[in-house]
Structures are given as C-alpha cells and as structure tokens.
Design a protein around this nucleic acid. Structure first.
Length: 801
DNA sequence: AGCACGCCGACT
DNA sequence: GTCGGCGTGCTC
C-alpha cells in the first residue's frame, strides 16, 4: 500500500510534522509530492501538502485515506518542499505557514461549516429552524442565534455538522463552442435549411471550416460575423456543444511594449557583466555584491545578464522592492523580453496573481520580476537571481514566517548552482562586510552614465533659520532655489521624511494628547478621512472639538503632514503647480503611477512627497531636490537609524540631474553635523561604511554580532512580564558567556491592540545552544498559547517594534 | 486549531 | 444525584 506523508493545515507545534495517510488504489498513480490534498483530520476535513510518497509507515493505528487531490499537478516543486522544511527551522515558523507563503493566497484553503439534517425532525423544527431545507450554513445559524437549539438536536443525533473545504484557486474560464458532428451530417443539416435562414447557413459553413476547433462567441463574431443568437440556435439544434476553456487573466493585456535592444555597455559595465557572466556560464554559485552609484547603469547590466541566462535556456528571478515595482520598471523587462516575463505585484488582484503564478508554474515565463514573495516563484532551472536595492528592509517579512528574501535567494542560488547578484548604491552593512570578508564578490560601478557628476548637496542648519526668525518649513536657501527653478521651468522634488514621525494633536491648555484606547501610542491625524487613526490596531475616531480632559478648545496640530506642507508651499509660491504624493493620494490602485507619469509629462512644477518619491523616479527635467527634514529618521530607537538616513538621503539625491541638466540638492536638518548626513552630502559610501562599522563594533551590533529578538505578549501585563523573565532566566543559564542579552524590556510601544509587549534582544557571535533553547521555549509555550500568551522569535530583526 | 474526554462546583 | 464549567491532550 502506498502512504502519503502530509503536512496538515493546522499551525501548531504538535502538528508541525507529517501525518501518514493511505492512498486509495484509484489515486495511486495520480498523487505526488508537493500536491495539495484534502484529508480527514480529527473529525474534520482540511487541506494538506504531500511531502513524501512512501510504502512504509510507523503509525500503529489505522490510517485514514486521502479524500482527493486539490491540484492536477504538484503546487510545490521538490525544491520548494525542501526549502520550506529548512526555512521553518531557521525562522521559527510552522512548515504549513512556510508552504502557504510560497503560494498565491488563492491556493490557501478556506473552510466552511454547514449543518445537515440526518434524522426526521418534527414539522415545527424543520420549518421553523431549518426553513424547510435539509442544510443550513453555520453563519446563518450564528446570525439567527439558534445555536443552543442546534446543540440539543446534535445531542439527539438528528443533525450533523459538516466541514467543507473550499478550494478558492479557480481558473477563469470562457465558454467555447465546438462541433463533434461529422462533415456529412453537417452537410445534411445545411441542405435541410430554408433558403432564407442565412445566419444558420453561415454558422454551419463556419462550423465545417473549423473542423471541430472550439471558438468563443467573441471569436465567432470576429472571424465569421456570427452573433450570439445564431450560436444559441446551433447549440439547440445539436450542431454545437459548449465547453469551458481556461484563460489567463493578463494584467498587461491592454499594454503595448516596444521591443528594446541591448544598449552598449561602458568599460566598467562590461567588466561587471563579464565577471558575473562567467559564473552563469560555469553554472557556479557565487554571491556578487554589485555596488553602483545611482545612474551607473545597474539595470542595463541586469538586463544583459538575464539575456545571457535566457540564451542558455535557463530562467531568471529579478527581485525589486515593492515600491520600486512601478510600471516604469516593469516596462524595462517587458520591452526587452516580451511576454515571457511574469510580474508578481501586490497591486494585482488575487486572480491575476494566481494566473501569473500558473504561467510561471507551467514554464511559460523565463523571467520573473517581483517583490519579496516572488523569491518563491516556482521556476525551474534558474540561471540567475538578482536582488535590486538589496539594502531595503522590505525584503524582510515582518510577520510569520519572518524570512529575509536575501537568505532565500542565496539558498536557491546554491540549489541551482547559479549566481546571486545583490545590487545597491548603498549596500547594507551586513552585505558590504561580507564582501569585505570575501564571502561575497564585490563588483563596483563607480562612474555615472555619460560621466555626469553627482549632484551638489548643500546642508542647511535649521536651527539657524529658527534663530533668524524663519518659522516656515522652508529655509531661505531652499526658497531661493525653488524660485530660481520655477523661473527656469525646471522641475523640483521635495521630500518629507516621515519615518518616525506622526501628526498628532495636543491640547495647548493642559497638554493632553489624544491616544489610542487599545495601544500606548498617540493617534494620527488623517485629513483625508477627517479622523484620528491608530496605525497599529486600526482604531478610528472623530477629531475632538474640545479637550476631553480640560474642556479647552485650543488644539495644536503637531507633525508636518504633507498636506500642511503643501498649503505652506502653495502660499509661498502661489503660481507653482504642486503634486502631492503620499499614502493619502496613492491609496487607489494605480494612484502612485498616475502621479508619477503626470509629473513626467511636466504637468506640475513641484512634486512633494514622502520617502516613496525616493524610488522609481527618473525624469530628466528635475534639477532640484529638497529634503525638508533630514533628521526625523535619526531619532528612532533602532541601531540602523543612521544607516537608513544615509541610504534615504543618498537615494533621493540621485533623483537630481540625470540627463543634460546638472542637479542640486538641499538638505534641511537640525543635526547638520551628523555623520550620516555629512557622508551623504559627500556621496561617500566608504566613509559612512567605516564610521558606522566602528560604531557597530563598539556597541556590539550587526554585522559584528548576530541578533534575535524574542517578544512575548499577553492581554495581561503581569503575565507577559512574568514569562519574559522566565525566558530570560532560561537563556541566561544556557547561553555562552560572551552572548549579550538586552532586556527584558517593554516593547517600544508597550501596548498594541490591548496586548502588552515585552522583549529581549539576544546578540551573539557563536552560539550553538541558542537555536535549541529557543525551539524548546516555543515548544513549551504551546499550552499557554491557547490562553493568549504569544511568543514570537525574529531572527535578525529589521524593525524593533 | 478544534474537539472529546475528564474531573470538580451549583443546581433541579 | 446531574449538568456543565473549562483544563488537558490528541489529531495519521
């Protein structure tokens, strides 16, 4: 008998292992590793993944049978099955979670409960409770509040609760019409028609010419000018049969892409291309750190490396940060490689995502372009993995499974014996340090395209502006330069650094700040909805008119929202056309792109936005970039705050002067002497790297130490606190003496959604005992989990919330 | 996760 | 005496 080992869809420590199922004889040849299946589990029916087919089981009891497969072909390749297993270990996640994140959300199971009548009911109950039907949905029962009566009936054995698994992954279909009649009989039909039945004659002629090939109604119309009513007649008369044909939802079907050819490479680009190309040709795994200043032509190198891979009959994976995945970016790839490019983008509908996934799965894509989760694209025969802007924190998923796409990329690169290219103008310290230690191979692009100089960056000390009685958000210098560019009809980009910043309101009389009732954080003012919102739990309330504490009416609005800056800017420059880009104006689908392309067409003089403007913006007429507040990101309680500030300033500076016109940057700051700002001004990555490395060394942070963040949360503050101290004690006993623990401390937001957070940050160099100790802590916490005590472990966290 | 089993308090 | 509270343990 054949046995399938199945990972079931129950995320719990006790079920985080394969369960054995008997394969019914009829399915023996049909089931395979990586398939989703429907299985009975503890009185229910749930989804699972087959991880292995075997002829042996250690299970002593009687095996249950697999009910049915949910796919025709395995959803997960052997590679992904293995990856998921290993990943679960390193990110402290359940295997089922890992497998689910590898697939489009549509393939995740949905469960429904229904109540079925199995025994005679008296008329009153049947017509009253069940409304004369033998089945009722669980929701219906809950809504009508009749569960108590149902429990009674259940006990009497008159009803059953059925568990239904819904496979949401449905391909979109269109109706097609074909004929299975012989030509002879069609000819007979033709002869028996009245002379006046022109439409039917035309239809029969068409059918005969198609030779049984199915066509949609639309195709009949286009090719033969036969309308739907004739087709209906054809079906009625039995000439045509209808069937469903699967179609792919193509998010780009209405777009034309002009074919582009490889551009000539500079000497430096050629050298970079050859270094990395050698590894492609030798089918050798190697990690490259491609460090190139903005405008050095990294993208063209990527495109040509991918072309090389395709030439070898292999496939390529191209990762970009979500925010950079603009249609502009997609264009580059679609134009070079045509429709064999699949794009995985969060703006796609779930159906479109599923179809792009299927396109890859079928082997119809040679190039996959996408954000973080595309690293799990089911491509076979990988020839290269490229990760652009590798320093971006969005490559780390901040919910379970907390994986970093960079690590997954390297794993897959090893598996496929292919190179991994990490590209950035401002590499993460971790990657740059690895390059220094020759773990990665450093490839540099130092020159800018067309030898264009990097923009001149001026720093304005905002403290001086304040002393000189300038209370505006714009320094005199920035105002002058804006005036100048407006006159010259050149474009301006202004960035508001919102990181670590929020707009809140405070009572001027008593100092009261409106806070979230569920979280220990002030509510943020949202002008678009005219409400106060909590960014952590979603709580929303009216903007108060009077202070709840002192009944005063004098509120002060803190925080510089883009909207407020826009008003200020417009007052200063009444004739300037300003475009604002922030979460409020880009919320709608395609809003981001619409604003960018309007700016690209020159429909505005000034683009004002948050960090999202630092990326994917490449317009020749921009000659001035202003950073309104460079330092708000410096004050965050995060050891990476300097690194992030440096990266952001460098990136936004790169927006200035990309073509014939040279650019200028004005950075306004209250900390003008901060090294992150000064090094960004000088475009000096190396200087920043060395300074930051020595600080990290002194403080004992990555890349000198590894980190793991353990977070405990509970609705009861005392319980969470007790647990974190217990964990602290266990770890103290077990870990190496040179391992450092910070904490236990309260979470940087102590309460979120009515849960209290406590955490410990473990910093270690060599630590073989940490992993088993943490696993054990997780295992043992399982019981408490049910009572609302959650433990989360984040290996190499990037956000410290 | 969700369900059955099992052991103690408040009732007909 | 029983009903039902939820703590405990299992699911192929």
């Amino acid at each position: 008998m054949q046995i399938a080992k199945v990972i079931v869809d129950i995320p719990a420590m006790q079920t985080n292992r394969p369960f054995d199922y008997a394969i019914p004889p009829a399915m023996e040849q049909k089931l395979g590793k990586g398939m989703r299946v429907e299985v009975p589990f503890n009185n229910r029916i749930i989804q699972g993944f087959i991880t292995e087919i075997s002829d042996h089981t250690d299970f002593e009891g009687e095996l249950k049978e697999i009910i049915q497969p949910l796919d025709i072909e395995p959803a997960l390749t052997e590679e992904l099955l293995l990856l998921g297993e290993e990943m679960a270990e390193t990110v402290y996640a359940y295997r089922i979670h890992c497998y689910q994140t590898m697939l489009p959300t549509m393939m995740k199971a949905k469960y429904e409960k229904e109540i079925e009548v199995v025994d005679e009911l008296d008329e009153e109950t049947f017509y009253g409770l069940f409304q004369g039907k033998s089945k009722m949905s669980w929701e219906n029962a809950v809504d009508r509040g009749i569960l108590p009566q149902l429990i009674e009936l259940k006990r009497a054995g008159k009803i059953e609760v059925n568990y239904i698994l819904k496979n949401q992954a449905k391909a979109k279909t269109v109706q097609v019409y074909y004929s299975d009649l012989e030509t002879d009989s069609l000819e007979d039909e033709y002869r028996s028609l009245k002379k006046s039945a022109k439409q039917q004659q035309a239809l029969l002629a068409a059918i005969m010419s198609m030779n049984g090939t199915p066509l949609t109604a639309k195709e009949y119309k286009e090719q033969f000018d036969i309308g739907p009513s004739a087709i209906r007649t054809g079906v009625e008369k039995g000439w045509l049969k209808s069937a469903d044909r699967e179609v792919l939802r193509d998010p780009f079907k209405d777009r034309q892409f002009k074919q582009t050819e490889a551009l000539p490479l500079s000497d430096e680009q050629t050298a970079a291309f050859q270094t990395m190309g050698a590894s492609i040709r030798d089918e050798r795994h190697e990690v490259f750190l491609l460090q190139g200043v903005t405008g050095s032509g990294k993208t063209e190198v990527y495109l040509q490396l991918i072309a090389e891979v395709i030439k070898q009959g292999k496939t390529a994976l191209m990762l970009v940060p979500e925010i950079a995945l603009t249609p502009q970016m997609v264009n580059h790839f679609k134009s070079r490689f045509g429709n064999r490019v699949a794009v995985m983008h969060s703006a796609l509908s779930s159906g479109e995502k599923y179809d792009e996934w299927r396109k890859i799965h079928r082997g119809d894509a040679d190039v996959v372009v996408g954000a973080r989760s595309s690293i799990f694209a089911p491509v076979e025969n990988l020839g290269i993995i490229i990760m652009d802007e590798e320093h971006e924190s969005t490559y780390k998923q901040d919910e379970n499974p907390k994986y970093h796409a960079r690590n997954i990329a390297i794993w897959r690169g090893q598996h496929h014996h292919c190179p991994v290219v990490l590209g950035s103008a401002t590499p993460s310290l971790e990657s740059r340090a690895r390059a220094q230690k020759k773990v990665y191979t450093l490839v540099e692009l130092k020159g800018r395209f067309n030898q264009r100089a990097l923009p001149q960056v001026e720093i304005v000390d905002m403290r001086d502006e304040f002393k000189a009685n300038n209370r505006s958000s714009f320094s005199v210098l920035l105002q002058e330069k804006i005036t100048d560019r407006l006159q010259k009809k050149q474009q301006i980009v202004l960035m508001l650094n919102k990181r670590g910043y929020s707009s809140f309101i405070m009572c001027r009389d008593c100092g009261f700040v409106l806070e979230c009732p569920n979280c220990d954080i002030s509510l943020t003012l949202h002008m678009d909805s005219k409400t106060m919102k909590c960014h952590y739990c979603g709580h929303e309330e009216e903007i108060p008119n009077t202070c709840p504490k002192c009944k005063g009416h004098n509120f002060r609005y803190y925080g510089t929202g883009t909207q407020k800056i826009e008003e200020e800017l417009q007052a200063l420059f009444p004739d300037a056309r300003i475009l604002r880009m922030d979460v409020d104006t880009t919320r709608k689908k395609g809003g981001h792109e619409a604003i960018l392309s309007a700016f690209g067409r020159g429909e505005a003089d000034i683009l004002l936005g948050t960090q999202m403007i630092a990326k994917g913006l490449d317009f020749p007429n921009i000659t001035l970039v202003g950073v309104i507040n460079a330092d708000t990101s410096l004050g965050l309680p995060d050891f990476r705050s300097s690194e992030r500030t440096f990266q952001l300033l460098t990136q936004v500076s790169g927006r200035a002067g990309r073509a014939e016109l040279s650019g200028e940057v004005v950075v306004q700051s209250y900390n003008p002497d901060h090294y992150a700002i000064l090094f960004a001004q000088q475009h000096n990555y190396e200087g920043f790297y060395r300074t930051e490395m020595s600080l990290r060394h002194k403080a004992g942070y990555p890349p000198y130490f590894y980190t793991a963040l353990i977070t405990v949360s509970n609705p009861d503050e005392k319980k969470a606190q007790k647990k974190i101290y217990e964990i602290h004690e266990i770890l103290q006993k077990k870990l190496e003496p040179d391992t450092i623990m910070l904490g236990p401390s309260k979470g940087s937001i102590a309460r979120v959604n009515n849960r209290y957070y406590f955490q410990i940050l473990v910093k270690y160099k060599q630590e073989t005992k940490l992993h088993p100790a943490l696993k054990q802590i997780l295992d043992e916490s399982q019981k408490e989990n049910a009572r609302g005590l959650y433990i989360s472990i984040d290996s190499e966290p990037v956000n410290f919330f």
